[in-house]
């Protein structure tokens, strides 16, 4: 009996640190089994063999920051049956999204002696600002377990089981002592989406929000708590304006942090 063709997987990179696509290669125990189930058709960081599209499943890492990438993401979408963004850059602009709050010409002059050589957009934008996205994996970086769940669900033809509850839920399940209650450590756990395994509180530090906002974040309450824990408004603004600066709930929190009515 002939074996059915395996779905074709592609991994694409836009502006990013490569960490989320490295997560695929970090699945040391599953990588070879995965390669039996899907055909790794286009993954430049891992292979010099490229099979032409269309692709069944595209994983997109990174944000759009150049005129060329604005064009390329449309091409990737056109070649992809299912497009999943992986990580904070692709879903919320990434740390390079901080340029959206600044003057990019000034940035260019700070880093480069000849800014005229550098082609860049004034903004870093999530993939969904440019093309329809079928699913997003959060995190800076994404969680390997969530990546494997997503691919398994895709192969099984079911919805992935990736809850948008808060880090607090995960933290409680892990049996951690709450760092806010026990030590007064500022922690974004209540407003941040689970998925990391609540690692920061497990290491006695507050969550810094690298998975972006959870499904129903109570931002005003979070801002009051951070203030009561002694964080100065500029520090509160910075903590929301880091790895997911353009996620709507975090963006509005960063704007409210330094406005008078919130204090």
């Amino acid at each position: 009996m002939p074996t059915p063709p395996r779905p074709k997987l592609a991994v694409w990179k836009f502006a990013s640190c490569d960490g989320c696509q490295l997560s695929v290669l970090d699945c040391e125990d599953e990588l070879l089994a995965l390669a039996d189930k899907v055909e790794i058709a286009n993954f430049r960081e891992a292979s010099s063999a490229v099979i032409d599209g269309p692709y069944d499943l595209s994983l997109v890492e990174g944000s759009v920051t150049t005129p060329e990438d604005e064009r390329r993401i449309k091409e990737v979408r056109a070649q992809s049956r299912v497009l999943v963004t992986i990580g904070a850059c692709a879903t919320a602009g990434g740390i390079q999204g901080l340029r959206n709050f600044a003057d990019v010409d000034e940035y260019r002059r700070v880093v480069y002696a000849h800014p005229e050589y550098i082609q860049t957009l004034a903004t870093s934008t999530p993939i969904a600002d440019h093309v329809p996205v079928d699913f997003e994996l959060r995190g800076c970086p994404i969680s390997k377990a969530q990546l494997l769940e997503l691919i398994s669900a895709y192969l099984g033809g079911r919805a992935p089981n990736l809850p948008n509850e808060s880090v607090c839920i995960e933290c409680k399940r892990r049996g951690n002592v709450c760092v806010v209650v026990a030590k007064g450590t500022p922690c974004l756990g209540p407003v941040t989406q689970a998925g990391c395994g609540a690692i920061c509180p497990s290491f006695h530090r507050g969550c810094y929000g690298c998975f972006g906002p959870q499904g129903s974040p109570n931002v005003p309450s979070m801002l009051r708590h951070l203030h009561d824990l002694g964080m100065a408004p500029p520090a509160v603004q910075r903590v929301f304006r880091t790895f997911n600066p353009l996620a709507p709930a975090f963006k509005s929190a960063s704007e409210a942090a330094t406005s008078d009515e919130e204090r």
Binding site: Q96, L98, R99, R108
Partner: peptide, 11 residues
Amino acid sequence: IFEPPRFFEAF
């Protein structure tokens, strides 16, 4: 290198 610039030293 056409890796897009991310401007770490600036932000």
